[in-house]
């Protein structure tokens, strides 16, 4: 006997993500999900972004990591409200899910915020699959990775609304082909805006900030 089910196996996460979206809408809060591989410079990009946006725009950050509060500590120095999610002390989940964001957002307190940025766990695979109730997704790739990463991890680049190519200050010292990396991103996601910048020096940062302000 066959029993019809016809369900998305991730339905529980999707339902929770919709609840989050509703909660954030009520708070009039824009939520950005920032994703990348480990070491691409998400935290440094965020530190500079927060320094530029605050205090005109009130920003809160939820940081996801498997272990340590290192990133949250760095980000808190900017004056932004920050909370850390650790998925496990010794190797836990590879992504943040919607229920984790619900808990963290309530802990953080969202009433006085305009923008909530979620720094996802460093991983180009799993976070792309899990809706957390965000309004937009940004993927960060750095020039110390490979130009072909967008073709190797197509889902991540396909689901993102914008991309950052970080650490461009290192280009003179590397064989990295930046136009090829951008071309590969656009092959996977035609029309996606790509911001080539250096979070360290601030080079190329303005178009990214303009884009972000326009989203709010």
């Amino acid at each position: 006997m066959e029993i019809k089910i016809r369900k998305n196996i991730l339905e529980k996460n999707l339902t929770e993500a919709e609840k989050n979206r509703h909660f954030f809408r009520e708070k009039n809060l824009f939520v950005l999900n920032m994703m990348s591989s480990p070491g691409s410079g998400k935290t440094q990009t965020l530190c500079r972004t927060l320094e530029q946006l605050m205090p005109d725009i009130q920003v809160g950050v939820i940081v996801g990591d498997i272990c340590t509060t290192n990133d949250a500590d760095r980000l808190a120095e900017t004056g932004a409200k920050v909370t850390q999610i650790n998925t496990d002390q010794f190797g836990g989940d590879c992504h943040l899910s919607a229920p984790m964001i619900d808990t963290a957002a309530r802990k953080l307190g969202c009433d006085d915020l305009d923008l909530l940025i979620v720094e996802n766990i460093g991983n180009l695979v799993c976070p792309a699959e899990f809706d957390i109730g965000e309004n937009a997704r940004v993927v960060v790739l750095s020039v110390t990775e490979g130009e072909d990463k967008p073709l190797k991890y197509p889902l991540m680049f396909q689901v993102s609304d914008a991309a950052i190519l970080n650490k461009v200050d290192l280009l003179p010292y590397l064989d990295f082909d930046a136009p090829l990396a951008v071309e590969n991103m656009k092959k996977v996601h035609p029309g996606m805006p790509v911001f080539e910048l250096s979070a360290k020096t601030g080079q190329g940062f303005d178009p990214w900030l303009t884009w972000l302000r326009q989203q709010l």
């Binding site: 016809r6 998305n8 196996i9 396909q158 035609p190």
Partner: peptide
Amino acid sequence: PVFRCPDCELGQVRLISGREIDIDSLT
């Protein structure tokens, strides 16, 4: 993983299928 439209290059593309993680039925 090249999702650019072969005809109009800059066209806005949309995924119709390929992201399913579904259970259809059990026997």
